[in-house]
Design a protein around this nucleic acid. Sequence first.
DNA 1: GTCCTCGCATGGATCGATTCATTCGACGCT
DNA 2: AGCGTCGAATGAATCGATCCATGCGAGGAC
Lengths: 344, 344
Amino acid sequence: MTIQRPKRASISDVARHAGVAVGTVSNVLNRPAVVAPATRERVLAAIEELSFVPSGAARQLRAGTITTVGAILLDIRNPFFTDVARGIEDRLARDDHTLMLASSDDDPAREAKYLRLFEEHGVVGMLVVPTTPDLSHLRQIQRRGVRVVLLDVPSSVAEISSVSVNDLAGGELAARHLLSLGHTRLTFLNGPHTIRQCVDRRAGVDAAVRAAGLDPHEVVTEVTVTSLDANGGDAAMRALVGEAGRPPAAVFCVNDLVALGVQRALRHLGGTELLTSVSIVGYDDIDIAAELAVPLTSIRQPTHEMGLRAADLLLRGEVGGAVEHVVFQPELVVRASTSGRPGV
Amino acid sequence: MTIQRPKRASISDVARHAGVAVGTVSNVLNRPAVVAPATRERVLAAIEELSFVPSGAARQLRAGTITTVGAILLDIRNPFFTDVARGIEDRLARDDHTLMLASSDDDPAREAKYLRLFEEHGVVGMLVVPTTPDLSHLRQIQRRGVRVVLLDVPSSVAEISSVSVNDLAGGELAARHLLSLGHTRLTFLNGPHTIRQCVDRRAGVDAAVRAAGLDPHEVVTEVTVTSLDANGGDAAMRALVGEAGRPPAAVFCVNDLVALGVQRALRHLGGTELLTSVSIVGYDDIDIAAELAVPLTSIRQPTHEMGLRAADLLLRGEVGGAVEHVVFQPELVVRASTSGRPGV
DNA sequence: GTCCTCGCATGGATCGATTCATTCGACGCT
DNA sequence: AGCGTCGAATGAATCGATCCATGCGAGGAC
């Protein structure tokens, strides 16, 4: 009663079956032109018959290189990141490379796990949205010959190529918009300051406030959400309303999912009336921002384009080649959550 | 002017550096207990110093097995699938396995590409949402010793384990609900009948109609959308309105993204008034269904649970072991898009 | 007829890990 | 002193591909 474990056919099985040498089979696979047509046919028939699939492990071990790229994103459920992933995939497909996707959930341990997995797998390179400001582990990996491109991280990091959006400008756009509506106090539901984007968006907010001749310390209230998704925004807004008895008049959320949570909390606490009494600005302009009960004003980032460029940098970049930083500009998209609402 | 390609340290480099044999280094890595503490320390120091990362390719080649599982989903941008992916990941993490994600976009060629990539990479198994009803290629892969579990495919397929939701019941729930509101004609924006889910949901719709004593041929109009996302729904609804001059009174959409597109089209064509004049039911109950301008009635599927179970089947399943089919039941979630709307 | 060239096929060396039979040395026991 | 035991380290064989120097036979030039 042996368990019948099917053994994969190897290249030498194929060679034997076709009556040729292993080297010839390898040539059929990799340089068909140098093999005589008759032989080639015979080998291909044998491959077919044994349903032979070459071992990627063996190929990689000997030949060194493969055509896989890894990407580690913060949250696979956030449309912002899946849009970027799509851009990456589109660019890779053009060079017949393939993408392995993973989600770190902003957990450095998970990030490390996947970095290691990808490196052991021998990927050509990785695209990473880092979970920590300390990038020394990524530089290490790069030194070992793996190409690394940072995603969504400002260009202040000198040694590794990156693609990002100007978060300072994004924060500025949002705050300037809210101020222009007449608000004199802003509440910023931000992520932790260990995340660079959050720091930069805050700096942008402050810059806009100062440009309006006001003092950020008096105008801006920053609240740190517990998670960068709808639940985080929901909880934060409930806490705010719980403290003050009423919600802040103007809220800027560090991403659209948080804004979604804020809207949900407001609706649950006081219905549409309460919801429409608050000006809300989100960030990322995900697909559904326009379809919400109260369509969301948001800061749009060129996600697909970012993915394209990032993959492009990675594919074209030599190891140890020139470091390049691409910075895209964000854009304000005004919708009902800050204007044109009934009663405002 | 040679390009300085950093060469990865190998296990024999480590051995030399630590003054031990390669076998000893391997033991430190895999069975630390059998190595004397002093030696172990020395080896670990050498590993650290050379920043040695073992080659997954070599390990896999010799040892045969690794701890990676592949998943091929239809559309990485559809929250339904990313929720499932999250469930998969959670279950895999418990066994220290990791997930490689890919998106086939319902394109058989892309599916084939990733199937091959995963197989060459020597994954333990794969979780696949198949793009075609013909599953012979998957059975082939299975025969070669790779575990395969189907996702979101009904249990009618005998040879491969699967996890799915009862789509017939889902279609029935949706149609029965619309009929109970008094509608006598239903428009079903469905996907192509090459997709099993679409066929089943249609069958469910027909069953509900018949159960109400009506004739499906007279009651149900089926329209095939060009793509299973918001754009597909948008285009289909515009076409319908273009033909008849007004939208159908009751619409059932094969997924929530399509329903989203329908809502968008209606709003653009006739504002909130037109939108609220149509009863709309979606499918999947994605996060944002509740947050839309007109919160969407939908059929909920236990996505996370599906991912968990699928991964569980894969990890526990022996090659050639028992085939198991898990079928979950869907659930109707009623929201404003079919009830409680002002003026209805 | 001899010598070259050229196209095609060959088979051994190699990549970097794991595995296991073997060796080595220290120690305890009689 | 001799023997057996046992823990620890060794190093060669192995996995399945690629790469490359080599072999070989046919055909052309002189």
